[in-house]
Simulated scan of single mutants.
Amino acid sequence: MPSLPWKAWYNTARWRALRLAIILRDLYTCRICGLVEGNTSLLVCDHIKPHRGDERLFWDEANLQTLCKICHDRLKQTEEQASLHTRGVWH
């Protein structure tokens, strides 16, 4: 499988700072279930519209939301798996 350059974006200081800014903006609250979680390791900074390697979508604050790990792993992943046939090409 070819290397996907966008995966490295998650390991940058820029992403870590943006992730924390989004969690703070959302007041440590899951946008799906409303759980308030002070432990940021239990929160996910989620892309609302999958970026599919599009750098503009990846860094767009309006395209990011805070989810608890449970909602992200259960609900969001279920949504994404259901849309596999309509996803298109990854950059």
Rank of each mutant, 00 (worst) to 15 (best):
T12R: 02
A13I: 09
A13K: 07
R14L: 05
R14K: 12
W15F: 10
W15G: 04
R16L: 08
R16P: 04
A17W: 12
A17P: 07
A17R: 12
A17N: 14
L18F: 06
R19V: 05
R19M: 04
R19L: 02
L20A: 04
A21F: 03
A21T: 13
A21W: 02
I22C: 02
I23A: 10
L24H: 14
L24P: 00
L24W: 14
L24Q: 15
D26E: 05
D26F: 06
D26P: 06
D26L: 11
L27I: 04
Y28E: 13
Y28R: 05
T29C: 05
T29P: 03
C30V: 06
C30E: 04
R31I: 07
R31K: 15
I32H: 13
I32F: 11
C33S: 15
G34T: 06
G34E: 02
G34W: 02
G34R: 05
L35S: 14
V36M: 10
V36F: 06
E37R: 00
G38T: 11
G38V: 07
N39G: 07
T40A: 07
T40R: 02
S41Y: 04
S41V: 03
S41Q: 07
L42W: 07
L42T: 03
L43D: 09
L43E: 06
L43H: 09
V44N: 02
V44S: 05
C45Q: 00
C45S: 04
D46G: 12
D46Y: 05
D46K: 09
H47D: 13
H47F: 08
I48N: 03
K49V: 14
K49R: 12
P50A: 02
P50W: 01
P50T: 00
H51M: 12
H51Y: 15
R52L: 15
R52F: 13
R52A: 11
R52I: 05
G53E: 00
G53V: 04
D54T: 05
D54W: 02
D54G: 00
R56S: 11
R56M: 07
L57I: 06
L57N: 03
L57E: 05
L57D: 05
F58G: 08
F58Y: 13
F58V: 12
F58W: 08
W59M: 08
D60E: 13
E61G: 01
E61Q: 11
E61T: 11
E61F: 07
A62R: 00
A62G: 01
A62E: 15
A62D: 13
A62W: 00
A62M: 00
A62L: 01
N63V: 06
N63M: 09
L64G: 03
L64C: 07
Q65E: 14
Q65V: 07
T66P: 14
L67H: 08
L67G: 06
C68Q: 06
C68T: 13
K69I: 10
I70A: 15
I70C: 10
C71V: 03
C71Y: 01
C71M: 01
H72E: 01
R74F: 09
R74Y: 08
R74V: 15
L75P: 13
K76W: 05
K76A: 13
K76F: 08
K76E: 14
Q77T: 15
Q77P: 01
Q77I: 10
